[in-house]
Amino acid sequence: MPRTRFAPDRGLTSRMLLTMFLIGLLYVVFVGALLVFLKGAWLIIVIIAGGLFIAQFWFSDRIASFSMGAREVSAQDYPELHGTVDRLCALANMQKPKVAVAQSDIPNAFATGRNEKNAVVCVTTGLLRRLEPEELEGVLAHELSHVAHKDVMVMTIAGFLGVLTGVLTRVGLQAGLFGGFSSRDNRDGDNTGMVLLIVIAVSAVAYSISFLLTRLLSRYRELSADRAAALLTGRPSALASALTKVSGQMAAIPTEDLRRAQPFNAFYFAPAVSARQAASQAFSTHPSLQQRLEQLGRISAELGRQ
């Protein structure tokens, strides 16, 4: 299939390649350290690492869609939504993804899937109820840009190490609680406790580095998707209006609902946090609303001069 007409972003491509390289290097070091310290458990390590990677890569789209309550909808059920996606896909010269709707009052959208064939673009009922057609078009173009640039797949793979280290840290802590650290009556018990502490420490370091790398990439990819969507539709003001409206409406959402949605913020068009939380989050998955609006303002000025 020919290349899509979404504006290419060499900065995004180079950042994705660098992140994948660093994550891969960190993964090799992490697994190597585990093999050194857990000499008798290499088979378990390989099975856990391999199994989690396969599950994360092949089933992440289904897991994310299910977790966020996404349900695939037909053109008969949501003709205007499908019509907008059809128009944008034709404009971008890309394969149409599956279209889904999540029954949630939180105004948001997300894209998931390891490639265009398995991609899903989902909007919430809260978003459909609040946005005007041109605003919804901007949001959908933003999500389709994620699919076209393959950054959904990259974020899925990049997030794998965090999942793995989290699992191993919990396993280590549980093993310690159930006797690993309390066996002080012989040398073997002391060695077991020391090994568990080392595994937890290595996992924590690997997770921290992975967390920082994915957050840096995540912020850039959101700015890239905003820019690509604005250039494709030619209406950056509509996307800016949608961003302002969605971010402002978060204050009306119950705190409990926002907390339930926060684990999926890396997927969302806008983070499910209140304005006060957004301002205080140093490690947010998204750039600030001000940064996004300023970029869209510059694009609007550029398009006005053409």
Rank of each mutant, 00 (worst) to 15 (best):
E132Q: 13
L127Y: 06
R129C: 01
S74W: 04
Q103N: 15
Q95I: 03
K117R: 14
T125S: 13
L52W: 03
K98H: 10
F53D: 00
I48H: 07
V120W: 04
E80R: 12
V73P: 02
P107Q: 06
V101F: 08
M68I: 11
E132W: 03
L81H: 05
P79T: 03
E132G: 02
V73H: 09
A70R: 01
Q56A: 09
V123L: 10
P97D: 02
I54C: 05
L131T: 10
I54F: 09
S65R: 01
F57C: 01
G69V: 07
Y78E: 14
R62F: 07
V46Q: 03
S104F: 06
C89Y: 01
A102D: 01
P97M: 02
R130S: 10
F66E: 07
T125I: 01
P79I: 03
T84K: 15
I63Y: 06
K117I: 08
P97A: 02
G51L: 05
E132Y: 04
E72I: 14
R87Q: 01
L128Q: 11
A49N: 11
L91R: 14
N108E: 09
A55R: 08
T124D: 07
T112G: 03
L127Q: 11
V99I: 15
N108I: 10
K96E: 08
F53A: 13
K96H: 04
N118Q: 14
V123I: 10
G113I: 03
L131V: 10
P79K: 03
T125K: 07
I45Y: 05
S65Y: 03
I47M: 09
L91I: 01
N115H: 10
A111R: 06
L127E: 04
P79D: 09
R130P: 07
F110Q: 02
F53S: 03
M94Q: 14
M68G: 08
R62A: 07
D77F: 02
L128G: 05
E134C: 02
V46W: 10
G83S: 09
Q103I: 04
G113S: 05
N118A: 13
C122S: 15
T112C: 05
S65E: 05
D77S: 13
A102H: 04
E80Q: 15
K96R: 15
K98P: 00
V73E: 10
C89S: 06
A100H: 02
G126M: 04
M68E: 15
A109Y: 00
P107C: 07
N108C: 07
V120L: 12
V99Y: 11
V73K: 11
N93R: 15
K96L: 05
G83N: 08
E80T: 12
A119G: 08
S74V: 10
I48C: 10
L91F: 01
S65K: 00
C89N: 02
P97S: 05
C122I: 11
